[in-house]
Write a protein that binds this DNA or RNA. Structure first.
Length: 934
DNA sequence: CCCGTCACG
DNA sequence: GACGTACGTGACGGGA
């Protein structure tokens, strides 16, 4: 049947897929011979997901083609030899993968198109036109803006990453003109990535404006003499030829001679044997298995592993499929003893607990699962409730469960046995649950932390993500058992049979992840990071969280009331000033009041079409003497303090302990910093007077004090060390005021009697450097003209040339290796570093900042890990960490002794792994509450 | 569920 | 040369 009405053609931009896959994945090689196959693996995964998506879609294509660039040389190079001249050649390890992706495409039984002298975009343009003219629908699967000129008349685009349809509206949003004028705008604006010259000095915005005004490019060029701005007029007249050349470059060729007809692109299902053979030859074990399972064909035996150094573990087995029917329910002591004996024999076991809540401080244990080998997992139901209510409307214990005391008595020696590794996903959770039941766990392994050491910056580290990414298996979602929202039930109400499948699978997944990650830690050289910076913190943090911190409810409650009163007063004033009542807490409504109704200046609409009403905007308005924004700022401060702190903190006071127990995440921040949730105790107010009163509600109990110790300028010290800046290092060694010193060096003023304003500016620059400074950012921070800020930066780099070298070196390292490193070997992946466009700036600054922030994080981690041993004979407890600060609760009278020890541990935390060229200095404070101690 | 806003280092 | 920009987090309320 000829392609036509009712048919739907998908055109996939295959080359874009390859690059996306290459940059998104760590370098992966084929085990047997080291052939780089990471991009092929990513490509196959993307295609597999695409095909699966079609299978379940009501909008599936009838015809499909995957289109590739033939080579870098095209007809455009003949028109303009500099076309794409500044594009670097593809990386060495990507080149051999190009041919393999063609092979992969054919293995999926998809039409694979490429033509000499043409870019993929030209083939897509030609087929799109043919499809449109035949009366069918066409969807281009790509996010390449160069293809947007093809949209319209039955042709659409689909951004596969964002799963976003691109129609006229999106094109308009991107280019400011409809698809038919995209070429005109691109011809004017040019393209730095492809080296299309365009008109100098004219960007996307200006180009769109000009085309909107004159209708199209030819008219614009013909009437260029009428343009009012002299510079722009001259540019257009002088560069008319270059603009026309640019048009030839950006116009896609939609009448190319292709040796394929639309009809030949009819969608075909893959031949299972062919596809599985290819995937297996690539040694993509999980994908092979997934596809083989889907087609219900047998997966061939995996290729033999390389005969390198013998693994300490049993030889890796061929993949065992996930199969819930192989999971066991352990309902008696004898069976449990057998499993425990198995664990002892092999020296490791994956363990997972099921409980009634996410908060470990209140959750009750429902059951425990164990896994000994892939597919060999069991669940011990302990506290499930039966579905039927008993006579009194209460709940009855479900049948067939072991007595919890009996089960825990059997598990206790296993968990405590240092010769048996207990493997968890997020060990801290389970360790806390066990601790509350009087069981301690030694020899802890944690797949979440392994993932963090291996893949920080590439993906998150929850079980579902890890299982999908690394095992190609999507575990049973907890929601399918518990439901969600109001009708959500707790795990003890899940029928035991269901619970077995879910819980045992989690342990199974955890075990498989551990087996996969263990060798990877060595290959990627992050074993030390995992073993010295991640794993030992599990117990330390568990103890801190369980200790909690005392917070005075009455103080918070009184503040809440006071805030509410003040807010009501402010609200009335605000409404009066506005002339009507509205929700002060709604930025949307506030924006309308300020800029539409009161017509105040400076109304700027953001992406979502709402006015920006951030503190900076309101401060500017208030400074001009407007009262309403000033009142709103006051109201906002109170509202924030009340809702986030004085109200919410009260809800976090634990009923049993009367204290607040935060939860730290070891993997929340890519740099290695901890993060704190439920509640976040790392952002308790300190900068405002009102805020400090909240901090004062954190107290020491009767007979004790709080002591707070924090690193002074740790990030700047690390910068001085890493960038090797003699002047900065010397200033730190001499104990000088670093910001004053910077100011003195930069502006040539003496340190004695320095204008505080000058010092403030130097301080802002010092901070800016850590963040990957930009003139714009510094200007905004200091509220000075951008040129002036740039002047400061130039002078800074001139005075401290090592800083620039350090920044350049860090970015080069990120580009070369795909990651940056802290002083202690923690790797932070930078997948976006080679991105083009506005994202590039973000990625560069993040890459500059990560080693500095991350090294500081590593140092305080090292201090925390050594702390329990250092203070074990002192009456002190470590309670909180706030990035560069540690808070302790200490018996009265012992404060100075504790400070002496803690300070020594903190100041010496980099050694012996790293010898810093600068001293680390820790300041200490003592108080009855946190505000006094800080 | 996303966005704007704002608390911290 | 234009573009959009300081780094890293988490919690809250509004609004679709």
């Amino acid at each position: 049947m000829a392609f036509g009405k009712g048919h739907h053609l998908h055109l996939i931009d295959g080359s874009a897929y390859i690059f996306r896959a290459y940059h998104a994945l760590p370098p992966l090689t084929r085990k047997s011979d080291g052939l780089p196959v990471g991009a092929v693996a990513g490509f196959c995964n993307m295609i597999a997901r695409y095909v699966e998506g079609n299978g379940t879609s009501s909008d599936a294509p009838t015809h499909v083609a995957v289109v590739f660039d033939f080579s870098s040389k095209t007809f455009r190079d003949d028109i303009y030899p500099l076309y794409k001249a500044n594009r670097p050649p593809p990386p060495e390890d990507l080149r051999p993968q190009f041919a393999l992706t063609r092979e992969a495409t054919r293995a999926f039984n998809l039409a694979c198109l490429e033509t000499e002298g043409l870019e993929a975009d030209d083939i897509i343009a030609t087929l799109a036109r043919q499809g449109r003219e035949a009366g069918g629908r066409v969807t281009i699967i790509s996010s390449d803006k160069d293809l947007m000129q093809l949209v319209g008349g039955g042709v659409e685009m689909l951004d596969p990453m964002k799963n976003l349809r691109i129609t006229r509206d999106e094109v308009f949003a991107k280019f400011g003109v409809g698809p038919e004028r995209v070429i005109d705008v691109q011809s004017l604006a040019g393209d730095s990535v492809d080296n299309v010259p365009g008109a100098p000095g004219i960007g996307l915005k200006t180009a769109a404006m000009l085309i909107q005004e004159y209708g199209d490019l030819d008219t614009l060029l013909a009437r260029a003499g009428e343009i009012k701005q002299p510079k722009r007029r001259q540019t257009l007249i002088e560069n008319a030829d270059q603009i026309r050349l640019s048009r030839d470059l950006v116009t896609l060729k939609d009448d190319a001679d292709l040796d394929v007809s639309l009809d030949a692109l009819e969608q075909r299902d893959a031949e299972p044997e062919v596809l599985v053979e290819f995937l297996n030859r690539m040694e993509f074990r999980t994908l092979t298995k997934r596809i083989a399972d889907k087609f219900k064909v047998e997966a061939p035996a995996a290729a033999p592993p390389p005969a390198s150094g013998a693994a300490p573990m049993a030889a890796p087995k061929a993949d065992v499929p996930f199969d819930a029917t192989t999971y066991t329910a352990i309902r008696d002591a004898k069976t449990l003893s057998t499993w425990i004996a198995g664990a002892r024999e092999q020296g490791y076991v994956a363990v997972d607990t099921e409980t009634t809540a996410l908060d470990e401080m209140v959750a009750d244990l429902v059951g425990v699962s164990l896994a000994l080998a892939p597919g060999k997992a069991a669940y011990i139901p302990l506290n499930h409730i039966s579905g039927e209510n008993d006579l009194f409307g209460g709940t009855a214990r479900a049948e067939g469960q072991m007595d919890m005391g009996e089960a825990l008595a059997l598990l206790k020696p296993l968990l405590a046995d240092p010769s048996v590794s207990k493997i968890f996903q997020n060990a801290k959770y389970d360790v806390k649950i066990f601790a509350r039941l009087g069981l301690s766990v030694t020899a802890i392994e944690d797949t979440m932390l392994m993932s963090s050491a291996l893949y920080a910056g590439l993906h998150s580290h929850g079980m579902d993500v890890l299982s999908e990414q690394h095992l190609g298996h999507r575990p049973i979602p907890i929601k399918s058992l518990l439901g969600s929202g109001k009708s959500q039930i707790t795990f003890d109400r899940v029928p035991v049979d269901e619970a077995v499948k879910y819980a045992a699978e989690d342990a199974d997944v955890t075990l498989r992840l551990w087996q996969k990650f263990r060798p990877e830690l060595h290959v990627k050289r992050v074993t030390t990071v995992y073993e010295t910076l991640e794993r030992p913190l599990v117990q330390v943090l568990a103890d801190m969280e369980r200790a909690g911190v005392l917070v005075e409810r009455d103080v918070l409650s009184r503040m809440s009331n006071a805030f509410a009163q003040k807010m009501a007063g402010l609200e009335a004033e605000i409404h009066q000033l506005a002339g009507r009542s509205f929700n002060v807490g709604s930025p949307k409504q506030l924006g309308e009041v300020l800029f539409d109704e009161m017509s105040l200046p400076g109304g700027q609409k953001g992406k979502t079409g709402a006015y920006a009403t951030g503190a900076e905007v309101l401060e500017d308005l208030a400074a001009e003497g407007h009262d309403l924004p000033a009142r709103v700022l006051d109201w906002r401060q109170l509202s924030k303090l009340k809702s986030t702190y004085t109200d919410a903190l009260q809800d976090h006071i634990n009923r049993e302990t009367g204290r607040v127990h935060t939860s730290y995440s070891l993997v929340g921040a890519v740099t290695g910093r901890l993060s704190s949730t439920d509640p976040n105790l790392q952002n308790i107010p300190v900068r405002s007077e009102e805020g400090r009163r909240i901090r004062a509600a954190f107290v020491a109990p009767e007979g004790k004090s709080l002591i707070s110790l924090d690193y002074s300028q740790i990030e700047l010290r690390i910068l001085a060390h890493m960038a090797d800046i003699p002047a900065l290092k010397q200033a730190f060694r001499d104990g000088h005021d670093i910001h004053a010193m910077t100011a003195s060096e930069m502006f040539g003023v003496p340190i004695e009697g320095m204008d505080p304003m000058i010092r403030r500016q130097a301080k802002a620059i010092n901070f800016g450097v850590i963040y990957g400074i930009s003139g714009f950012g510094l200007a905004r921070n200091l509220r000075i003209p951008r040129a002036e800020a740039q002047g400061f930066i130039d002078r800074y780099f001139e005075r401290f040339p090592g800083i620039r070298t350090y920044m350049d070196r860090t970015i080069a390292e990120a580009k070369e290796q795909g990651y940056v490193e802290t002083l202690f070997g923690r790797k932070i992946n930078t997948p976006e570093i080679n991105a083009k466009g506005p994202g590039a700036g973000f990625a560069k600054r993040a890459a500059i900042n990560a080693p500095i922030q991350g090294s500081a994080a590593d140092i305080i981690r090292r201090a925390m890990i050594r702390m329990p041993e250092a203070i074990k004979d002192l009456p002190a407890k470590m309670l909180l960490q706030v990035h560069d600060e540690l808070l302790f609760e200490v018996e009265k009278g012992a404060e100075e002794a504790v400070i002496k020890v803690v300070k020594a541990v903190m100041e010496g935390a980099a050694a012996p792994a790293v010898h810093l060229d600068v001293p680390l200095i820790v300041d200490a404070g003592i108080g009855q509450n946190w505000s006094e101690a800080h």
